[in-house]
Write a protein that binds this DNA or RNA. Structure first.
Length: 210
DNA sequence: ATGACGATTTACT
DNA sequence: GTAAATCGTCATA
């Protein structure tokens, strides 16, 4: 029996619930030649939708770039940032609700050799320990944007062992300092102690008071 | 048509 | 800790 995939019912949950639910399951990529790449999800951030100032859909923004955020829960939202990086999200909620979960880190499982090639021969813990790193390692780009993870043969989520509640840590999201009060909301979730969780970047210095 | 800006990573001091 | 890399996207005009 092949492993069971995560179904629409789970993937339609709200972004915060889904972020926690994704931890401990596996993201799987099957290449055209049949090779498998996969990793255990160990870090996820929730982007809640129109009210969330850190989300691409804040204020109901609906553009060419973020249109996948409005798809039904369980679709992929893959976007390009900083002129060179791709990031992968699992869309949350029902169609018309622009919420998503940014997958920030994986524990590499299958296909580590190919991942290492794609990542420039780095060590195992440098393969998928960041949103753009895992996208590069797994070969996720525009071609995967909008894919339905429930039905696709090339990209999907396999049920793993899940995550014990006690092992899930939470804190502020990374790289959203522009989002005002939303920047400090604890919507980042990770498996405490896992070596593949991304490192928090240095804090931006605040301007000195006048 | 133009300009500002990133849901980041990497290298360097 | 700081800074460079690098360009598609979006808002403004």
């Amino acid at each position: 029996m092949p492993p069971r995939r995560l179904g629409r019912r789970v993937l339609r949950r709200d972004a915060e619930s889904l972020a926690v639910a994704l931890l401990g399951h596996r993201l799987v990529r099957v290449l055209p030649d049949g090779r498998r790449l996969s990793g255990r999800i160990v870090e996820v951030e929730a982007y809640l939708g129109v009210e969330d100032r850190a989300a691409h859909s804040f204020g109901g923004r609906r553009t060419e770039r973020n249109r996948s955020m409005w798809l039904d829960g369980g679709h992929a939202y893959v976007y390009f940032v900083y002129g060179m990086h791709w990031c992968f999200n699992v869309v949350a909620g029902r169609e018309g609700v622009p919420a998503a979960c940014l997958v920030r880190a994986l524990e590499p499982l299958e296909g580590r050799e190919l991942m290492r090639t794609r990542r420039g021969g780095r060590s195992d813990r440098e393969l998928c320990s960041g949103p753009a790193k895992l996208a590069q390692a797994m070969g996720l780009d525009r071609g995967m944007d909008g894919v339905d993870l429930v039905t696709s043969r090339s990209l999907f989520l396999e049920r793993g062992t899940g995550a014990p509640r006690a092992s899930v840590a939470r804190g502020a999201r990374i790289g959203v300092d522009y989002a005002g009060e939303w920047a400090s909301r604890p919507l980042r979730f990770w498996l405490e102690g896992n070596d593949n969780v991304s490192k928090t970047p240095p804090k931006k210095r605040r301007a000195p008071p006048p």
